[in-house]
C-alpha cells in the first residue's frame, strides 16, 4: 500500500474546506504541523483526543556499545519524542 504524505492530506482538507484554494489549504495544513512542532519544542505535550498524545521525554546520559566494533561509546543526554496512541486509534487498527 502506498504511503500517505502531506500532499494527500492537503487534498482531503481542500475537498472538505469550502472557499479555499489548494495553495491556501496547503498553507493551513503546514501551520497545523508547525504549531504542533513549536509546542513540542518548548517541552509541552500535545493531546489529540481520538488519535493520541505526543510527549517529550528527557533521556539521561548512558554508555552504549558500537555493535560492530564492541567499542564503548558515551550516549549524550537527549530529548526524545514518544507517541502514545489513543484507545480509539488502537481499536481502529485492530478491527
Amino acid at each position: 500500500m502506498a504511503t500517505m504524505t502531506k500532499a494527500d492530506i492537503v487534498e482531503q482538507v481542500y475537498d472538505n474546506l469550502d472557499g479555499f484554494s489548494k495553495k491556501e489549504s496547503a498553507d493551513i495544513v503546514e501551520m497545523v504541523f508547525e504549531s504542533i512542532k513549536e509546542t513540542l519544542e518548548t517541552g509541552e505535550k500535545i493531546k489529540i483526543s481520538g488519535f493520541g498524545n505526543f510527549v517529550v521525554r528527557q533521556k539521561k546520559e548512558r554508555t552504549g556499545r558500537n555493535p560492530q566494533t564492541g567499542e564503548e561509546i558515551r550516549i549524550a543526554p537527549r530529548k526524545v519524542l514518544t507517541f502514545k496512541p489513543s484507545q480509539v486509534l488502537k481499536n481502529a487498527i485492530n478491527t
Partner: peptide
Amino acid sequence: TIFRAMSETLADGGRVEI
C-alpha cells in the same frame, strides 16, 4: 480532517509520512 485521514490510513494497514 488531518487526524481522520491519518487514522483511516493506519486502520487500513497503511503508512503515513509527514
